[in-house]
């Protein structure tokens, strides 16, 4: 596969466009050969990362573009998500601590799972803010397909 297959998509950071974009990217990656057992993980983490840009980076400002660059290699997938919105707090990745479930019905969290899911499902995450641009890199490793599945699922 050499340097891998590329898939690029750019869209305005609105909830509606993100919804369509996430579905398009997931479909495109599967068409390019992303292993089916990894597709769910990628879809969940990608959606959470893009939703964060829409809901936080462009909160209170006119939404500009979100750019997503995917490069699918034989044993791993790199995804770079860039935007020109507000940097992450403290210019660093939030911790992946899940929201506590609480002990009563009205204590149940209705959010706060995004970064937990991203941390949980990726093999590596990097973030940098450079030249007014947020760059979030997600990496997903998957075993060599020629080695066969490790266990039946």
């Amino acid at each position: 596969m050499g340097n891998g297959n590329c898939l690029d998509l750019s869209f305005t950071a609105t909830e509606a466009e993100a919804s369509v974009g996430i579905a398009q990217l997931s479909k495109g990656l599967e068409a390019q050969g992303l292993p089916p057992h990894k597709a769910s993980d990628v879809k969940i983490a990608l959606a959470e990362a893009i939703n964060n840009v829409v809901e936080h980076a462009y909160a209170g400002v006119t939404p500009a573009k979100v750019q997503v660059h995917c490069r699918l290699h034989q044993n791993w997938l790199d995804i770079l998500i860039s935007d020109t919105g507000t940097p992450l707090p403290g210019f660093r990745l939030p911790d992946g601590v899940p929201a506590p479930l609480g002990s009563a019905l009205d204590e149940l969290p209705e959010g706060g799972f995004g970064w937990f899911l991203i941390h949980e499902l990726t093999s590596d995450i990097r973030y940098e803010h450079r030249n007014g641009c947020n760059r979030l890199s997600l990496r997903f490793d998957f075993p060599n397909p020629s080695a066969g599945p490790k266990k039946a699922t």
Binding site: I44, E48, N51, E110
Partner: peptide, 14 residues
Amino acid sequence: IDSSGLGAIVASMK
């Protein structure tokens, strides 16, 4: 479903 959708189901239960 994403975490916002999940949150909406939790809110529906509440």
